[in-house]
């Protein structure tokens, strides 16, 4: 296969960046998208040019490191897969492919296609601790969890934190990521003690990081390599409103009525 690639090149965070065009030959349909990028970099190396920097790690769709917007769609055209699980057979011979990094204020570009996603880590950190049993090993099933609830919590926990939801959102919102992280602990009995405090601090951190606001487009769900549902966003909104409206700021405060 012969392809024409339009790739975002940016030397560092301060560089303005530009789109560069490369022609690439010898691409096989059974190559993954990242293997195609490796091939491009080999050819660039041979010509003495700088290879294109991009993130990748496990290359089997579980780590959430790869992050490319391919022809205007995060992780490319196929649903429920990360960039590493996208194969070149999805493209026709002679195709033009545009490859860009995630675009969001909270995800600054470090180099070429690599962005800094530590904003996500800070949202997670804002969640704080979870009071779990430590010490001797607890009895198995000492804490009963309904199977449906466990499955639902695992659906939320499948989030690999890749950031495709932010990249796909016309508003650059991180609602699906935060909702998945809030829900997975909020659903389980182990997560109950800090449930309402956690949703408030994680949403507050999400807003501090400069992500946009949700307009319920559901584009995030379509781009998510783990197909996480926007029903978790509704769940997070429910918890957040309950935490904000129903609980007093200081529950131990006195009434001072007289």
């Amino acid at each position: 296969m012969k392809l024409t690639l339009q790739v975002w090149r940016q030397r560092n965070a301060d560089d303005a960046g530009r789109m560069a065009r490369y022609r690439i030959d010898g691409v096989r349909p059974d190559m993954s998208f990242l293997e195609m990028m490796d091939l491009l970099n080999e050819q660039l190396n041979q010509r003495g040019e700088d290879p294109v920097a991009f993130d990748s790690d496990c290359r089997e769709g579980v780590c959430g490191t790869c992050s490319m917007v391919i022809n205007g769609r995060p992780h490319g055209p196929s649903r429920g897969t990360a960039t590493c699980q996208l194969y070149m057979r999805h493209f026709s011979d002679g195709a033009r492919i545009t490859i860009e990094p995630w675009r969001a204020k909270a995800f600054p570009v470090i180099r070429d296609l690599v962005v800094d996603r530590s904003a996500f880590d800070r949202i997670m950190q804002a969640g704080g601790y979870v009071t779990v049993h430590s010490g001797p090993k607890p009895d198995p099933n000492a804490l009963p969890v309904e199977p449906e609830v466990a499955e639902l919590a695992l659906d939320a926990a499948t989030c690999i934190g890749c950031g495709a939801c932010v990249a796909a959102c016309p508003n650059g919102a991180a609602m699906l990521y935060t909702a998945a992280k809030v829900s997975h602990l909020g659903l389980l009995p182990q997560g109950q003690p800090e449930r309402y405090q956690r949703v408030q601090s994680m949403v507050a951190q999400m807003e501090t990081e400069g992500f946009g606001a949700c307009r319920n487009y559901a584009e995030c769900e379509a781009a998510c390599p783990k197909k996480i549902s926007i029903s978790f966003i509704s769940r997070m909104n429910r918890d957040f409103l309950r935490a904000t409206l129903a609980e007093p700021v200081n529950p131990r405060g006195t009434m001072d009525s007289q």
């Binding site: 205007g72 860009e100 487009y217």
Partner: peptide
């Protein structure tokens, strides 16, 4: 403000 640099290739909207 959340997306100061726009995409070169327009975002393809599939769900909205």
């Amino acid at each position: 403000a959340a997306r100061p640099i726009r995409y070169h290739h327009r975002l393809v909207l599939v769900e909205s």
